[in-house]
């Protein structure tokens, strides 16, 4: 009796695995639905239109940062300097907007992001430093620069451009205005990943870097473009986040770095490269935002939340490794 049941169960497990690796979105959406259901049960009536708009509003910055991680992870890399790039952009726009018109301030604010991306790209692409170490190093330098910059503008005060506040916090007809920025960006990311040669090169490098180089791809050019793109995206996210939080600080976006990695990993992007898509990452960001609300309601301390995020990254990575090995 028990023998037949295990014989039946094994192929079912195989099929489940196969299904999950083919359609990673389905289990993710189920997980999201379960989380919302639990939330509704814990504090009935919390899930309404306003709550949904609010959740989306806070998930968008996270999803943008996770977009940086998705793109870099496709090549087997990671970008830990996104928090610094975003924070620098946010802080600089708030201080420069005092004297300059908003568009000029935003342009100035994106310069450091471009520089950080350039340094990352050179370090990873040309010198072959591990991306994790390289981006950690540039983010240290960036924080130092920001502190020096802060001393020079401490007297001038700060002002967040009205446009960014409208974009970050405004809600029109139940839809957050931030969607106006997010939908085109998400479409662009998906277009790059699925339809352009550059996107295919990213997957190719993540799959087999040596083979890609032997096929004649200029590795360092792709990597340089990738890390600059990632940094600029982080800078844009910083501008949006400034409009949402409205209080400049020197560690504005840092708390989002870890969740951004977690969102990309949960969304099915392999940290080893070659697998993943931005659609999954968006759902991953939503899951994490709902999860954060849930943990806040349960009054879980910040420390426990970090432990949980670390465990999620480890568990999901190990699980994906098993699925890939079986195929």
């Amino acid at each position: 009796m028990s023998i037949t049941s295990t014989a039946e169960r094994a192929p079912l497990g195989q099929r489940m695995k196969r299904f999950m690796s083919d359609y990673p979105l389905v289990p993710l959406l189920i997980l999201l639905a379960i989380l919302i259901l639990v939330l509704q049960m814990l504090s009935p009536g919390i899930v309404n239109q306003r709550w949904i708009a609010n959740t989306v509003k806070f998930a968008i910055p996270l999803a943008l940062l996770a977009g940086c991680q998705t793109m870099t992870m496709l090549t087997g890399g990671i970008d830990l300097s996104v928090g610094t790039a975003a924070t620098m952009a946010a802080f600089i726009v708030a201080t420069q907007a005092v004297d300059n018109p908003a568009p000029v301030a935003m342009m100035i604010a994106l310069i450091p992001a471009v520089l950080i991306g350039f340094a990352n790209g050179i370090g990873v692409g040309v010198f072959r430093v591990h991306p994790l170490i390289m981006t950690l190093g540039t983010s240290l330098i960036g924080v130092g620069c920001l502190q020096v910059y802060q001393r020079t503008v401490i007297a001038s005060g700060a002002k967040v451009p009205d446009f960014l506040i409208w974009l970050g916090t405004g809600v029109t007809g139940g839809f957050p205005n931030a969607l106006l920025l997010f939908i085109p960006v998400a479409a662009l990311l998906l277009f790059i990943q699925k339809r352009t040669g550059f996107g295919r090169l990213l997957y190719a490098i993540g799959d087999n870097e040596r083979a890609t180089r032997l096929a004649g791809v200029k590795y360092w050019q792709v990597i340089l473009a990738l890390y600059m793109f990632s940094s600029v995206l982080a800078g844009i996210m910083g501008l949006l986040y400034m409009g949402l939080i409205r209080a400049p600080s020197l560690s504005l976006a840092e708390p989002l770095v870890l969740p951004s990695v977690a969102a990309a990993v949960i969304g099915g992007t392999s940290i080893f490269g070659g697998r993943g898509s931005y659609t999954g990452t968006i759902v991953g960001a939503l899951i994490l935002t709902v999860l954060t609300t849930l943990l806040t309601i349960l009054q879980m301390p910040e420390g426990a939340r970090r432990i949980l995020f670390g465990a999620i990254i480890l568990l999901v990575t190990a699980a994906y490794l098993r699925i890939i090995e079986d195929r």
């Binding site: 990695v261 301390p301 420390g303 426990a304 995020f309 990254i313 990575t317």
Partner: peptide, 14 residues
């Protein structure tokens, strides 16, 4: 990287 976050969280709990 994962244990970095977990140890950090544990330190905050202590």
């Amino acid at each position: 990287l994962a244990t970095l976050f977990m140890l950090q969280g544990a330190a905050l709990l202590v």
